[in-house]
Amino acid sequence: MDSLVRAQTDEHVLRALMRHRRLTRAELATEIGISKPTAGESVRRLTERGLVADTGERTPGGRGRGRVGSYYALTPETGVALAVTIAPAGVTAECLDVYGDTIARAVRRIDRPARPSQVAEALRDAAAEVSAGRPARLAVVGAADPVDRASGRLVHLPDSPFLVGELDPAAILAPLAVVADNDVNWAALAEPGRPRDFAYLYLGEGLGCAIVNDGEVRRGHGGLAGEIAHLLTAGPGGRATPFIEVFGELGLRREGSTAIDVERLLGSDAAVREVIGSAVAGVIAAVVALADPSEVVIGGSWGPGLIDGIRVAAGPMPRQVPLRVASGGGEPVLAGVRAEALDRLRAAVLSVPS
C-alpha cells in the first residue's frame, strides 16, 4: 500500500511540474494538497530516477520572507516526442517537449506524384534533424493515405492521388515507438469543441471522411473506414458516378494525377459548382444514413468555400443534419498529431519504472 501511495504522489508531482514548469517543494505541497515532507520525499525519489532536478534558482527568502526555497523542474531526460505529417506538399516534422512546446521543426518537399523512396528519405531526414541530440521517445504520424490498423503501413488504394505506396513509418523511424493514422482522422480529433458523434468531410486535393462515434474515431476492420472516393453519388447530368470520377468528368484533376486541382475548382463557374454541390450532398446522404452523426463538419482546401452550395444541394435530403465549416485552424492535421504526441509523451514519462 505504501508503494502505491508513493507512486501516486510521484505522479502528482510530475503532473504539477508539467503544468507549471518549475515549483519549489512548498509550492508542490500546496498545489497537490500534501505535506511539505511528503513533497520533499517525492522530489528526492524523482531526482534519483533522473526525472526531476534542482534548477539552481532560488526564492528570495530572508528578512521575514521565510526560508530560501529551491526550484525544481523536469530534466531533459524526460524526453521529447515527434509530430510528423506526410502530405502532397511534403513531410513536416516537429519535436515537442513534455510542456507541449515545439522546440524544432523541419520540412522536406516531395515531388508530384510522390515516389515511396523519396517520401521515406524525406521522413527519415526530417525526423533526424528535429530529434538530433534529443532523447526522442516516440513519434506520431499523420499521412494523406489510409493506414492499415494491424501493421501501421500506409495503404495504396485505386485512384489515390499521392502514390505514396505501402510506406512503413514504423520501420523508417525505428527504434522509436510509432503511431500512424490517416490525416483526416487527426484533423477531426483536433476540431475544437467537437461533439461525441460527428462526421468530418475532408474536401481538398484528396477526398476523405472521419467518423467519430462516442468520442472515438471509427477506423474499420482494416483502417479504411471513411474512404469516400468511390461512393456512388450524383455526377454530371444526374448520372450515378463514383465521387472521385465526378472531378475527372468536370476536368478538375491535376494533369497525370487523380488529385483535384483546387485552384481550378474554386475558379469554376456556377454550373460546375452546382454539380459538385450535388455530388457532395450525395456523399453526405450516404454518411448520414450509415453513421448517424449529429453534424457534418466540412474541411479541406475547397469544401468550406462551397459550403453554401452544398447546403442548398443537401436541402432535399430525407435526413437532415447541421452542416458547418471546420474550425480547426490553419494546420488541423498537425494540431491533432501534436496533441496525440504530447499525450503519449506525458504518459510515457509517468510510466517510467520507479
Rank of each mutant, 00 (worst) to 15 (best):
A16P: 08
L17R: 00
R21K: 14
R21T: 14
R22Q: 15
T24R: 00
A26R: 15
T30N: 13
E41D: 12
V43C: 02
R44S: 13
E48H: 08
R49M: 11
R49S: 13
G50V: 01
V52P: 07
A53I: 02
D54R: 02
D54E: 13
G56S: 05
R58I: 14
R63P: 05
G64K: 06
V68A: 11
Y72W: 15
T78Q: 07
T78V: 15
T78S: 07
G79D: 12
V80K: 04
A83K: 04
A89Y: 09
G90K: 09
T92Q: 14
T92K: 10
C95G: 02
V98S: 07
I103H: 02
I103C: 01
A104P: 10
A104N: 13
R105D: 12
R108V: 11
D111P: 01
R115P: 08
P116E: 14
V119L: 05
A120N: 04
A120E: 15
L123D: 11
D125M: 00
A126Y: 11
A127K: 06
E129V: 00
A132Y: 07
L138T: 11
A139T: 12
V141S: 02
G142L: 07
A144M: 09
V147I: 14
S151K: 04
S151F: 07
G152M: 05
G152A: 06
V155I: 15
L157Q: 01
D159C: 01
V164M: 14
L167A: 08
D168Y: 01
A170W: 00
A170D: 05
P175K: 02
A180W: 01
W186R: 05
A187C: 03
L189H: 01
A190L: 06
G204R: 00
E205P: 08
E205I: 12
G206E: 09
G206M: 02
C209Q: 09
R219G: 08
G220N: 08
G220L: 03
I228K: 00
H230Q: 11
H230R: 10
A234S: 15
G235M: 05
G235N: 03
P236M: 09
G237D: 05
G238S: 04
P242L: 13
E249G: 01
G256V: 10
S257Q: 12
V262S: 02
L265R: 04
L266N: 05
D269A: 03
A270M: 12
V272R: 03
R273W: 10
V275N: 03
G277I: 10
S278Q: 15
A279L: 03
A281Y: 07
G282Y: 11
V283H: 02
I284Q: 10
A291T: 13
G299W: 09
G299C: 06
W302G: 11
G303S: 09
A313E: 09
A313Q: 05
A314E: 09
M317I: 13
M317G: 03
P318G: 08
R324I: 12
V325Q: 10
G328H: 12
V333G: 00
V333A: 04
L334K: 01
R338H: 07
R338V: 10
A339S: 14
L342K: 02
L342I: 14
D343Y: 00
R346F: 11
